[in-house]
Amino acid sequence: MPVLTAPPTLGDLLKFECNPSYGRETVTLKAGIAYPLGAVLGRITASGEYRLSPAAEVAGDEGAETAIAVLLDAVDASGGAVTGLIAARGPVILAEAALAFDASVDQPAERTAKIVQLATVGLVARATV
Rank of each mutant, 00 (worst) to 15 (best):
M1T: 10
M1E: 14
V3D: 09
V3T: 12
L4Y: 14
T5S: 13
P7I: 02
T9N: 03
T9G: 14
L10C: 03
D12P: 01
K15Q: 15
E17V: 10
N19Y: 07
P20F: 12
R24I: 04
E25W: 06
V27I: 15
T28W: 14
T28H: 10
K30M: 14
K30H: 11
G32L: 10
A34M: 07
A34I: 06
P36L: 11
P36I: 00
A39P: 02
A39C: 08
V40R: 00
L41H: 01
L41E: 04
R43I: 09
A46M: 06
A46V: 13
A46T: 12
E49Q: 15
R51N: 10
R51V: 12
S53W: 09
P54I: 09
P54W: 08
A56S: 15
D61H: 14
G63D: 08
T66K: 13
T66G: 01
A67H: 07
A67G: 04
A69G: 06
V70D: 09
L71V: 02
L72N: 03
V75S: 03
D76H: 09
S78Q: 12
A81F: 09
T83D: 13
L85P: 00
I86A: 07
A87I: 02
R89A: 15
G90Y: 07
A95D: 15
A98R: 02
A98W: 06
A98L: 06
L99N: 04
F101K: 02
F101N: 01
S104N: 05
D106Q: 13
P108R: 07
A109I: 11
E110K: 14
R111Y: 07
T112W: 07
K114L: 09
Q117H: 11
G122F: 06
R126Y: 11
T128Q: 11
T128F: 11
